[in-house]
Design a protein around this nucleic acid. Structure first.
Length: 566
RNA sequence: UCCUGAGUAGCUCAAUGGCAGAGCAUCCGGCUGUUAACCGGAGGGUUGUAGGUUCGAGUCCUACCUCAGGAGCCA
């Protein structure tokens, strides 16, 4: 980046200081000289400054002629959009540009009164209003300014004469880049009205254009960026664990098989079994359900690592919290015990939420208002106790409640709903907590995120570290689950079993063939060490931050049972 | 996979077993500094699919499909 800035500076063909050179460099690749002249208003004169066609820069895409930055600096370039670089609408609205001529490209949201063109280019939740003076343009072109069309607009930024916006663009030229037939648009979610989330889901390829999904996916990006930022700043290394795996022992759920065998004529062994020796990898393989085991290997050498990749579960889960394909973040840290693991999980979650509130204020504000409007129509007991922005602030400002599974059982047995027989499922030590129990703890009792630790050994995975039996001889493992309001289990992790003999016993108890796990067990043979990690469902984090109630609305193209459209 | 509910115009929803409707959107016309613009008019339907009951079914019954909410599995 720095070197590219320097070369832009050397070219010296752009007026202005260091800042404008950097901006020119950043946007230079979007510049196009070839505006289709037949789409330009014939009544407008087109002036091309000599600087438009000169001095290629050395190498790189910047070797195209460079445009003037603004009409203010080169006032003799007055119109036509020719060779003007595009300005993102976010930039037009957030910086002081009154008096400058800008070019924006985007999609029409509304065209009110044949005069007010509301454009959005995805750079921000906000639209820019472009005022089209009909007398200056032929009717044929005006008629193509319809909802959904892609257009390029050039004009002066002026203080708005209306009251709904601070600035607007007074259009000197408008070009239709891509038409949208109103009769066809009318059949899609692009028609400017409120649609249900179910309808939007049926047109997932178009829902990016809506305000809600624009906001959701900008926030999703910010959170993904925050994940890498957090770990990078703290000396973690990102590990790309395999997507195709032969490990069948992770115990994290049903797996999607990966094969190149002909399904209509499977090769058989003499015993009549499927002959996986003929398969692509010469063994049975599947899509990964977790990168944890591989991340452990890396952590026991690189110290602290994390994965952030796709994960696949072939469970027949039909809920608002499950996907067949989702993204998971799995840090793994050598020498961390369960306490360190909890501290990491809590600090990490707080960091991500805070990052979103700082970097996505406009989008979160929109989703907040959207939620407030939607909740106004719900019955009181169905509403969230806190609106979105308060929920986020609450997580940032308050420490999570921490307690053991055994203590949680006591809390539940002491609760009103338990004593009044309101729980559907029994509360007994040794069984997994049900959704209703977790929800009570998070939403009613503690009213904040809860970290539960030390679960009964038989309910958890083989790799979790076995604790000392308690005074009643009950066995637990050093597992931790972080529960969030509305989302449920957002994170699950543990201290790993580092003792070879205990791990072997656990493999036996879970019917896991130790010989297939030789590479995993090897780490316990050569310099084994205490280590811990967790898995965070990325979409569940996005759900919490955006307030979306269905996980299928926080991933662009959801995969779920009987559903892989788009 | 289980439980509950839903499926009627492009969208959101009405319609006691008796003529299938409204608002918005679309199209045509008007108005023109609008803010989910407004005013007038028009077009738009195999009521999810397949059977059944009935003189008559959007409405009742059966099966299936899809979706939603909840449960299980989990992140």
């Amino acid at each position: 980046m720095d070197s590219r800035c320097a070369s832009a500076g050397r070219s010296g063909n752009v007026a202005g200081g260091a800042r404008s050179r950097r901006e020119s460099d950043r946007y230079g690749k979007y510049v196009s000289l070839s505006v289709p002249v037949h789409l330009v208003n014939p009544s407008m004169s087109i002036h091309v400054h000599p600087s438009m066609a000169r001095r290629p820069l050395a190498g790189t895409d910047a070797s195209r002629p460079r445009p003037a930055r603004t009409a203010t600096r080169l006032p003799h370039i007055i119109s036509g959009g020719v060779a003007m670089r595009r300005t993102r609408i976010a930039e037009v609205l957030s910086t002081e540009r009154i008096g400058q001529t800008v070019n924006v490209k985007g999609w029409v949201r509304f065209f009110r009164q044949g005069r007010f063109l509301l454009l959005n280019d995805g750079s921000t939740i906000h639209n820019v209003q472009a005022v089209v003076d009909q007398e200056h343009f032929d009717e044929a072109r005006i008629r193509k300014l319809t909802t959904g069309a892609a257009v390029s607009v050039t004009g002066e930024v002026v203080a708005s004469a209306g009251t709904g916006q601070v600035v607007e663009i007074f259009v000197s030229d408008v070009t239709i880049l891509g038409e949208a037939q109103p009769s066809e648009v009318q059949k899609t979610i692009l028609q400017p009205k409120t649609h249900t989330l179910e309808t939007l889901r049926e047109q997932a390829h178009l829902r990016f254009r809506t305000s809600t999904f624009g906001a959701v996916f900008r926030i999703r990006h910010a959170l993904a960026f925050a994940v890498h930022q957090y770990f990078n700043d703290r000396g973690y290394f990102n590990i790309h664990t395999p997507i195709v795996t032969a490990a069948d022992a992770e115990g994290a759920g049903e797996m999607f098989q990966v094969t190149t065998l002909p399904l209509d004529r499977l090769p058989r062994t003499p015993d009549g079994l499927i002959d996986y020796g003929e398969d692509f990898f010469a063994r049975k393989t599947s899509l990964t359900v977790s990168g944890q085991l591989e991340a452990e290997l890396a952590a026991l050498a690189l110290g602290q690592v994390y994965t952030f990749g796709p994960t696949f579960r072939a469970e027949n889960s039909n809920t608002s919290r499950h996907l067949a394909e989702f993204w998971m973040i799995e840090p793994e840290v050598a020498f961390n015990d369960l306490q360190d693991n909890m501290d990491l999980g809590e600090d990490f979650l707080r960091y991500c939420v805070r990052y979103a509130t700082v970097h996505c204020a406009d989008d979160l504000n929109f989703l907040h208002q959207r939620e407030v409007k939607a909740e106004a129509q719900l019955l009181k007991d169905q509403r969230n106790e806190m609106p979105l922005l308060e929920r986020l602030a609450f997580v940032i400002d308050n420490e999570f409640a921490r307690l053991t599974y055994t203590e949680a059982i006591d809390v539940l047995r002491d609760s009103r709903p338990y004593k009044k027989g309101r729980f559907t499922y029994p509360v007994e030590w040794g069984t997994d907590l049900q959704s209703e129990h977790e929800r009570y703890l998070v939403e009613k009792h503690f009213k904040k995120p809860v970290i539960l630790v030390d679960y009964p050994a038989e309910t958890k995975a083989f790799y979790m570290r076995l604790n000392q039996p308690d005074d009643q001889g009950r066995e637990t493992v050093a597992a931790m689950d972080i529960l969030f309001p509305g989302v449920g289990e957002i994170m699950g992790g543990s201290q790993r079993e580092e003792r070879l003999d205990v791990l072997r016993q656990r493999c036996d108890a879970f019917d896991i063939p130790a010989e297939e796990m030789w590479w995993y067990l090897d780490t316990r043979r050569f310099g084994t060490a205490v280590h811990s990690g967790f898995g965070l469902g990325f979409e569940r984090l996005v759900m919490f931050v955006t307030g979306m109630g269905n996980i299928r609305d926080v991933i662009p193209f959801p995969r779920a049972p009987k559903s892989a459209d788009f």
